[in-house]
Design a protein around this nucleic acid. Structure first.
Lengths: 210, 210, 210, 210
DNA sequence: AATGAATGAGGGTTCATTCAT
DNA sequence: TATGAATGAACCCTCATTCAT
């Protein structure tokens, strides 16, 4: 009865949300935090300004939504990994590869998001964690993997938190270099360069391919 | 005749510029890009708002000035190095150490500056180069050193531009992790962690100390 | 047949209206005109926003409804008074007491309502009369009582309309002083102070108690 | 030298401030708090929106400024009274008359201001005191006068704070009745009605004229 | 060179009301 | 009658920049 109506409604809502996501992404890629104004977003998504606020509490929530959506595939991936059963180094390699490839696709988006998060006044990690669960779940996962790998002697002795932070810095920063045009690599080259560096640094032997 | 007047003028100007630098730095550290408004800057420096525009074309130029000033010691240092006479790896090690230690002192300033640069609409490296000469001179220097070291077989085979970008990403990103509080290292720990990672990555042997 | 349905409907409607009254009152007390938003009201009353508009033409009507409901006891009381049979002064005293005591209970509500009425664009009394019948019926009643009392020589010669207005001003204004915290009296003190003042002013002899 | 320039500047500033005051007053009279928008104010005063914010921190400050300006004559008047040398009752009578006459002129403004103050979130008297010094200085003055008069037996025994509050309520409330059109008195009638009531209430003997 | 009042585009956000279902 | 997503006008406020003096 009202069933069809309900279904339609859900579809419509989802369409609006999707449109908002799509356009927010686009605007963030193009102009970063300042480039995405709620007005532009509404216009591009074809809704009134007020409607945006029916979907997102405020501008920050838009950003966090875009980020979570973007990280979703990685999140889904790591969630199905049995961290105790598998080899930490192998997990690390696979996830790293996935992250690099995924983020490469979004290389114009990520720096904008990072910047946007920075502009948020609530600067403490705890606050971020509340708002962008995905990012922190992924990072904690990587820390755990590094920890386990270190315990098994697969990685050199290093505080896993520091290690993860440096790895994270490496990936995000290099992404940013691509973004601003200081570097020009394709997805494969990027992934390989990151892996090479992360495993062996400047001096260690070359990794044996992607 | 007007000699003394000229001298006075130079001194006064220099004092104003210095005051502006000092306060801009302070404001950037405290509140980032958004925290530094031209009004606050003028008030703290003890001049009128309009006067700031006699010293800097716009807000961006203030940022670039702060950055250049901050990087000045490193710049001075590398300028006196004879890149052809000395051992590339040794140079790299020394400069890396200096950079790490210097930036650690400014760890609250750097992210603000990076953000500020990002907000500039002219995103091409060419534009940056025009505006923040120091940063690019340093980076180009490091590239050259890496190139030379690679040629000598001191570093593994890797495109020096990519290598430098990754190294840069590593340093700046880890700095940012310190800034946002995800990481808590003192200057020495930071410098060592960076060096360890940059030279040998996650798997290579530990470096033999700071 | 449809009788039961009709009855049910009436009951349900009345329940909704009651819930809306209750929550509107609460919201007005807590946050005044601005504190009561149609959304909050709907949520608290457990209906959809649009439903509120089935019960009330607009926000103003909600306010008027709350006011009328609040004044209902006084209205009921005065309606059963035979203004021609009883002593005007005695009536006045009794009703004044009732009003003071009643309004004291609602001292956090009344200022909000007064403000709300003020914000209505239709400022003429005629309009108010249409919307809040209770208030004007009470005020007209008081005017008549004062008129009769004045005719009997119980009150000093004074235009009854003016007299009533001043009395009204006195009560409502003092209530407001309680509300904003400039004054701190309990119900009895308030009632007595008002009566004392209204009967004898600053100089006349003290009234002989509540 | 720059003297003339300075003078001109002062004049111009004062002209802008004056224009802002005039138009703010007008807008408040016409439409109350909500009727006065910063945009309308700027347009009417012939300046840019931002300029208003060079003169007033925010909308509230505009209101407080208008209020203080409006109360200035009364304030000036009471400040030159030697409260210890003169007869309290006479002082009270004179000041009351002045207040009534002054406020009568502003009868369209006062309710708007009162409302505006109410809408301010900082509801405590202490906060008001900080912001609208005039009002509270006047009210404290009246309290003191009432206190002294009561001590001398000129007024009946009553807590001076309560007494002042009731008097205040009476004046402001009756003003409001004029404002909304429930009452129609000229200045003299208003002043006399208030005095009559305040001194002798409904029952006491009539005062002997203005 | 120094001043600082004026500018005004632009931003984020709110919320009473409408209307298709 | 109930729903609640959509609306969009309105609002307050910020701040980099200009320019007459």
């Amino acid at each position: 009865m009202a069933r069809l109506y309900e279904e339609k409604k859900v579809v419509l809502e989802s369409m609006t949300r999707e449109a908002l996501f799509r356009e927010a992404r686009q605007l963030l890629e193009e102009g970063g935090w300042k480039g995405m104004t709620m007005e532009k977003l509404a216009n591009l998504a074809g809704v009134a300004k007020g409607t945006v606020y029916n979907y997102f509490k405020d501008k920050n929530e838009v950003i966090y939504f875009v980020m979570d959506r973007t990280l979703e595939p990685v999140l889904t991936y790591i969630r199905q990994i049995d961290i105790n059963a598998e080899n930490p180094e192998e997990i690390f390699t696979r996830v790293l590869k996935m992250i690099c490839e995924g983020l490469y696709e979004d290389r114009f988006l990520i720096p904008a998001i990072v910047r946007a998060i920075n502009e948020d006044e609530n600067q403490t990690p705890a606050d971020h964690e509340k708002k962008s669960i995905s990012l922190w779940e992924i990072r904690r996962f990587m820390q755990t993997v590094l920890q386990k790998g270190t315990n098994k002697g697969q990685f050199k002795k290093m505080d896993p938190q520091t290690a993860e932070a440096v790895v994270h810095a490496c990936i995000m920063g290099t992404l940013r270099e691509l973004f601003v045009g200081n570097l020009d690599l394709d997805s494969e080259e990027f992934t390989k360069a990151i892996a090479d560096f992360i495993y062996f640094g400047l001096k260690g032997r070359q990794s044996t391919g992607s």
